[in-house]
Structures are given as structure tokens and as C-alpha cells.
Amino acid sequence: MISPARSWREFPQRYRLEAARCEGCEKVLYPPRVVCPDCGGCTFETTPLPREGKVVTFTVVRVPPAGYTEQSPLPIALVELTNGVKVMMQVGDLADPEELEIGMPVRLEFRRVAWDGEAGLIFYGHKAVKG
């Protein structure tokens, strides 16, 4: 599973949806990187991601990996946010996973994403819910 140090390192992106805006070309990177893949710039300012978007593609994972088996069937979508940034995330609150479709509007909500048994770490992040 994920180490405490790694989990802590990812808090700004998982908890606060912090992205990086390239000072050279304005491209927004999520997660942040050392180098802008578009212009090669190396200076960024922190910016939060918007919390609305739409489903670009999706699946329902019927055979999830270890640590996620209790959540089966697990709907996961690639969501394009209103600023054009695409983010992969679980989809929550669906009465029936068959409701998922390309183009579905969603909003992002802070949720528990995974957990490492009864005594291990709990991993929080954002899920998409019908918007």
C-alpha cells in the first residue's frame, strides 16, 4: 500500500486540488511538474483546480485491485474540468453505475478514496459526483 511519507507528500493535490500554472505559457498542470511539457518553463504559481467538469471517458471496474475490493463495482472516470485539465477519479453516489456516460456533468467532492485495512492509513481525495 502507500507509505505515510508518500501520502503526506500528495496532500496538496489530493486534499486541496493544488495545480501549477506555468508562468511562461499559462498552461495549468495537475499534478505539478518540474518542467512545463508545453513551453519548457520552470517557474509556476500554485492555483486550485475548478470543481466542475464533464466525463470524457469512464469504466466500471468489476475486479478491483487489493485495497479497493470492498468498493466493487468501482466506477472511475476521466473528467475534463472547466479549465481543460483532465483528471482521473472515482465516481461517487451513483445509484447504478450504468448511469455513467460520456459527457455527463460532474462536480468534485472531498471523499475517502481507499484505506489500508482496519489499522492502516486512510487515503482521502476527490471524487466526481453528478453535477
Binding site: 500528495e10 475486479v63 485495497g67 472511475i76 482521473m88 472515482q90
Partner: peptide
Amino acid sequence: EWEGFHGITFPGLYAMLAQV
């Protein structure tokens, strides 16, 4: 970090390509 964290598997990733 940015795909596996959410519980996606390899069949899941190709399923996403298939949907498109």
C-alpha cells in the same frame, strides 16, 4: 500516483479507451 491511486486496473484503462 495519478491513475493507480484511484483503483484503476489495466483492463480498466483499456476499457476507457474502448468507451471513447
